[in-house]
């Protein structure tokens, strides 16, 4: 009789915890759908071709996102071009070449710490080093270099994880064929680790796309009447444009801001799905 009781209680406990963690999952999904719903219901009818191709305006109906959209694309592409090679290079060095010295430990510890530094600090660093010291001005290049610094720790750490997951047996097999270290890295290690590296990089780049604070410090602007043509041009980006609209007195601008958020979300989803596609492609190739 008593034993049955205990079993019953254990089973009930089990069910309660099952329900609790299910609720936790629901909580996230619920908040996300409320957010999405309010954004979509506000912004969807403001979304049009004109909205994409127009310049900002004091009239909500005429306001467009074109310079901010192009500014964001410029920034993201440059940031990717800078941070991808530097990040993977660092990770390769730390995992494959560096000896286990105090210095290596120190570098690793610092990279881990840098990942937790608030974004605005990077903005101030970017202002001091890129804008002022190197004289790059308040340009897209300064912004992209700052953003690269911001996301490098993320890229390095996730690349390190990916490189570490390459089975030692594969590398030894490669060495057994008489290859050099570099040949093993390019032929075996990198291809195997690439899906993991890509995931980390894309996460970093998505973050750079959504950041506004460091760019405000570096000098991205609220209103730009032209489209950037070179990396030395001044610029604005989507998050700043959206923030700017959300703080305008006219109520309709709230809807314009919502439409801007939809565009930003769309690009983020686009980048993430490219990442997933690439990852799947390489994963399949490795299995063959």
């Amino acid at each position: 009789m008593k034993e049955q009781d205990i079993t019953k209680r254990r089973k009930i406990k089990n069910k309660i915890f099952h329900a609790l963690i299910f609720l936790c999952t629901l909580f996230g999904i619920f908040i996300l759908s409320v957010l999405l719903f309010s954004i979509l219901s506000k912004g969807l009818k403001w979304l049009s071709i004109d909205f994409i191709t127009n310049f900002p305006s004091r009239f909500p109906k005429k306001a467009g996102i074109y310079p901010a959209l192009l500014g964001s694309l410029w920034l993201i592409i440059l940031t990717a071009l800078i941070s991808f090679p530097v990040g993977i290079g660092t990770a390769l060095y730390l995992e494959e070449y560096a000896k286990d010295t105090k210095l290596t430990e120190f570098i690793k510890l610092n990279i881990a710490n840098l990942a937790g530094v608030p974004a605005i600090i990077y903005g101030m660093l970017g202002l001091a080093v890129f804008v002022r010291m190197l004289g790059l001005g308040r340009s897209i290049l300064s912004g992209a270099l700052t953003m690269s610094l911001l996301i490098l720790p993320t890229i390095i750490i996730s690349s390190q994880e990916a490189l570490r997951s390459v089975p030692e047996s594969l590398k030894q097999a490669s060495y057994a064929l008489g290859t050099t270290k570099w040949q093993t890295i390019t032929g075996v290690t990198l291809p195997y680790a690439l899906p993991g590296i890509l995931t980390g990089t894309i996460l970093g780049i998505s973050r750079a796309l959504g950041e506004a604070a460091p760019l405000i410090v570096v000098g991205a602007l609220a209103y730009v009447s032209f489209v950037p043509k070179t990396p030395f041009d001044q610029f604005t980006v989507l998050p700043i444009q959206i923030f700017n609209w959300s703080s305008m007195p006219k109520k309709e601008f709230q809807n314009v801001a919502a439409a801007g958020i939809i565009v930003l979300l769309f690009i983020l989803l686009g980048i993430n799905s490219i990442a997933i596609l690439l990852r799947n492609k390489y994963q399949i190739r490795m299995k063959d």
Partner: peptide, 18 residues
Amino acid sequence: VAEEFNKQNPDVNITVGI
């Protein structure tokens, strides 16, 4: 003002920060 000015003078680049 910048918006209106640019309608007449499209070759002048104007940036406004906050």
